[in-house]
Each structure stands twice: as structure tokens, then as C-alpha cells.
């Protein structure tokens, strides 16, 4: 039953894809040669005017270009012409770097807030004010103080990945079932051992959910951050190709950003499933 549902869903998905590609193809194909145009004028105007071709690339153009990228993802022809694989590598490295620092800060701090009502109340106003700030608003301040665009981008990832993890960890730790804590108390389990053997496993699903939200936000923000700082990365690639008026490459970049984002999310989803326990 479930199997037949998956098959039917796959059929619908593929049909939608074909419908979309077909519509795209029809919308962007040429309308045929325009009549009565001198060859010299035609050469000057290009295919858009002479063949009635849309400036928007069709699925076949994008497919051909994508194949080129897949064949040599790691070429490096100077600062303005690097393979899409290299650009992705830079972006992923920045995201992971900022994200790991955010994990290292958010989880211990979240434990502190979750376990101590005093710290929870004391830090609450700061969290409430800092949380809604767009991470990109930090960029000028980061550039001015850090004086390095790459580190600034990492800082922006850190600051945007911090909040969901911090809030989920604090919530997960504070919401650990009273009876589990009481079990540990009656067994005279000390604070540190209790944190690792009872509270951490009990709060892990909530913490991992926060980490999953954070990696999604970090991947959203890196594109914008790299458009600002420039130099390398998939965000820079998008902006550079826009300046080159290569809509084909922009479309490919959008597709690749989506794919990488999905993979990152799925990795965290798998970790979340690993620590989730049935009750």
C-alpha cells in the first residue's frame, strides 16, 4: 500500500517536472526568423531580434551548460572564473566553520540557560533583542572590526546559526521530564553526570531540531553574505554571473544551492532520527 503510494507520488512528481520543462521550453523558444532584415543588421542585433528568441535561456541551454559544469567542476582560471565545485566548496567551508563555532557556543550556553532559572531570566532580554536582527545587518560592523571579508562572512553565519540552537537547547533542557530528573536525584547522580546521562539524551531531539533549523538558515544567509563580501563562494558566483548577464549560470547556481541545502538538511534530519527515542 505504502509502496504503491510512493510509486504514484513519483509518477506525479515526474509529470510535474516534464510539464514545467515543456512549458519553459515553449515559452523561451524562437518564433522563427524575422522577415526583411539585412544580414548585416541581423548580425548586429543577434538571435533575440532575428530569430524571435527569448533572452531567457531555455531548458536545453541550461542543460548543456550544466553538463559543462559537471564535466569540469573544479577548474580555476583566475579570480573571476572558477568552477562551480570550487565556489560551492568555499561556501560550504564557511557555513561549516561558522556553524561549528555556533554549536560550540549555543549548546553549553543553552544548557546553562535551561538549567538555571536565574541565567534564563537574566539573559532573556539580550536574546529577545539580538534574535530578530537580520544577520546581514552585522556585516558592516563585522567588516569594520574584523577587517577581513572571509572572517566576517563566517561571523555572520555564526550569528545567524546561533539563535535557533540556543533557544531549542534551552527549551529542551528546561523541559526534561521532572520524573527523569527525580530518578537521577534519588540515585545521587551529580550535576555533571546528570547533565550527560539524563538531560543531554532527553533534550537531544529538541537540540538536533534546533541544529537542523540553524543549518538551513546558515545556508540561506551565506548566499547573501557572499554577494556582499565577494571574491569566492556560490553567492559571489551568482552575482558575478548576473554581472556577466549569464542567466544560464544564474539558473544553474539556483538549482545547485537548492540541492546542497537539501543535502545539509537531510544529514541533520538523519542525526535527529538517530537520537530520537520512542516513549
Amino acid at each position: 500500500m505504502a509502496n504503491s503510494l510512493s510509486i504514484r507520488a513519483a509518477v506525479v512528481s515526474i509529470a510535474l517536472l516534464l510539464l514545467f520543462l515543456g512549458g519553459w521550453h515553449i515559452a523561451t523558444r524562437g518564433t522563427g526568423p524575422a522577415a526583411n532584415m539585412s544580414p548585416e543588421y541581423a548580425r548586429l542585433m543577434g538571435a533575440t531580434a532575428t530569430q524571435g528568441k527569448s533572452a531567457m535561456p531555455g531548458p536545453l541551454d541550461v542543460g548543456a551548460k550544466l553538463w559543462e559544469h559537471i564535466k569540469s567542476p573544479f577548474y580555476d582560471k583566475g579570480p573571476n572564473d572558477k568552477g562551480i565545485g570550487i565556489q560551492l566548496g568555499f561556501s560550504i567551508a564557511r557555513v561549516l566553520f561558522g556553524y561549528v563555532i555556533a554549536v560550540a557556543v549555543a549548546i553549553p550556553l543553552g544548557f546553562l540557560i535551561g538549567m538555571s532559572p536565574l541565567m534564563s531570566k537574566a539573559l532573556d532580554p539580550y536574546i529577545q533583542i539580538l534574535k530578530p536582527i537580520s544577520p546581514l545587518a552585522w556585516m558592516p560592523l563585522a567588516l569594520y572590526t574584523i577587517k577581513d571579508s572571509n572572517t566576517s562572512a563566517i561571523f555572520v553565519i555564526f550569528i545567524c546559526a546561533l539563535w535557533p540552537m540556543l533557544i531549542n537547547t534551552a527549551f529542551g533542557v528546561a523541559a526534561v521530564r521532572r520524573e527523569w530528573v527525580n530518578v537521577a536525584r534519588t540515585l545521587e547522580v551529580g550535576t555533571v553526570r546528570r547533565a550527560f546521562t539524563v538531560i543531554l539524551p532527553a533534550a537531544a531531539p529538541t537540540i538536533l531540531t534546533g541544529m537542523r533549523i540553524s543549518i538551513g538558515i546558515a545556508w540561506l544567509v551565506i548566499v547573501a553574505a557572499e554577494m556582499l563580501v565577494g571574491g569566492t563562494g556560490i553567492g559571489y558566483f551568482v552575482w558575478n554571473e548576473w554581472n556577466n548577464l549569464s542567466i544560464t549560470n544564474v539558473i544553474i547556481a539556483i538549482l545547485v544551492i537548492g540541492l546542497v541545502g537539501m543535502i545539509l538538511d537531510q544529514i541533520l534530519a538523519r542525526f535527529t532520527r538517530m537520537v530520537t527515542f520512542p516513549e
Binding site: 521530564r177 520524573e179 527523569w180 527525580n182 530518578v183 536525584r185 534519588t186 540515585l187 545521587e188 539524563v198 539524551p201 532527553a202 537520537v275 527515542f277 520512542p278 516513549e279
Partner: peptide, 19 residues
């Protein structure tokens, strides 16, 4: 003074650690 290993508690809701 506080909980002790001398006194074991059996909880109404069993309170087993599910993981």
C-alpha cells in the same frame, strides 16, 4: 538531607529512561 541511595523510589509513572 536531600535524596539518598538509601531510599529507593518506585514512581507511579515508572519513570524509566526511554533511550
Amino acid at each position: 538531607e536531600g535524596p539518598s541511595l538509601d531510599r529507593a523510589v518506585i514512581f507511579q509513572s515508572h519513570a524509566l529512561l526511554p533511550w
